[in-house]
Simulated assay, not measured.
Amino acid sequence: MSLIAFLGAVELGFIYGLVALGIFISFRILNFPDLTVDGSFPLGAAVSASLIVAGFNPWVATLIAISAGCLAGFITAILNVKLKILHLLASILTMIALYSINLRIMGRPNVALITEETILTPFADLANTLGIASYMLMPVVFLLLAIIIKLALDWFLNSETGLAMRATGANPKMARANGIYDSRMILLGMAMANGLVALAGAVFAQSQGSADVTMGVGVIVIGLASVIGGEALLNPRSIMRATLACIVGSIVYWLAVSLALNADFIGLEAQDLKLVTAVLVAMALVLPGSRFAKMFRKKAGS
């Protein structure tokens, strides 16, 4: 695997680490199976790309994209909490609706950003000033972004509101008995989760130079593989370790994909990406109970 492929995989690992953190909130904290992320990821990309092309400041466009993702998660939670629609079905309904909404926002299947200024443009200019290739600096930029989001999420989940949200996911009846408005916690948590996913979509579109209406297909699978795989490698005994596991799992996932697709002796090509994804997800599901994972976690804990 070349240096460019390695750094590209690490860059994708940090970007999709934000997706994994969002899925961690919905699946692990709230115990809410959420498929909205397959729609909120391209939603963040569509909103940010369309606004940037329209002349908006890229930072403002990214913030609006995050808000759009929060709204998508909020709607899913409303369907479940207020209209009593099964959580899985509620997220599917939102995801399906977002496909048409994303097309409406962009006005066409894809929007190019190659010639537009994005939030990453200053960092590309900095790389030129330092005399290095931009692909060498971008992983550092996304590393810093992932660290900031992780630390902010750690702080929130250990705050009073965060503890109430964790209690809601662990035992809703007990949470209500202790005066916690569990419906509000679900609304807030789902908004946060999809806001993070939308941020990842916005950053991904600006990094790759385009937004596409189909770019969200399979995001939920990648995110779950990152969360489960990371937990297999790092025993999530605390919130800090659990959020770190999400990011580590995402990096390991994309390094495995890159290695599989760039290993000539295996014979895989770009069209085999979904096959590789399926195999990696199966491994992520089996790995946590394996003897190797238990030995690894035992050594890491000692």
Score class of each variant (00 low, 15 high):
K82E: 11
M215A: 14
I92P: 01
I147T: 09
S207I: 00
V286Y: 11
A263F: 08
A152N: 04
A232M: 07
M240N: 04
F204C: 02
A293R: 13
N31C: 01
L153E: 02
I85W: 08
G179W: 09
G107H: 13
G179A: 12
L89D: 15
L98P: 07
G13Q: 02
V53H: 09
G249Q: 01
I15D: 07
P122N: 08
G267R: 15
M174S: 12
T94D: 05
A97R: 03
L261S: 06
I114A: 13
T277M: 13
P122M: 05
M215T: 10
V141I: 15
M295F: 09
V140L: 12
L71P: 05
L21E: 05
R108F: 04
S26C: 06
G69C: 00
G39V: 06
A49R: 04
A202G: 09
N171G: 01
I101L: 15
L144Q: 02
R291W: 05
A177W: 01
G201E: 08
T36A: 10
F265N: 10
P58L: 12
V257Q: 13
S67H: 01
T94V: 15
S134K: 10
N262P: 02
S302L: 13
L280T: 10
L43M: 12
L83M: 15
V281P: 01
G209P: 10
V47Q: 00
L103T: 02
I29G: 02
A54S: 15
L21V: 06
A97N: 03
L79M: 14
V279A: 13
L199N: 10
F123A: 12
A260H: 10
A72K: 02
G216Y: 11
A133M: 08
A232F: 06
F41M: 07
L3N: 03
G22Q: 05
A177G: 13
S238G: 06
S210K: 14
S226A: 15
E160G: 01
A282N: 03
F56S: 14
L188K: 06
G201I: 02
M185Y: 04
A77K: 10
L120D: 07
W155C: 08
L145D: 00
F56Q: 11
V140M: 09
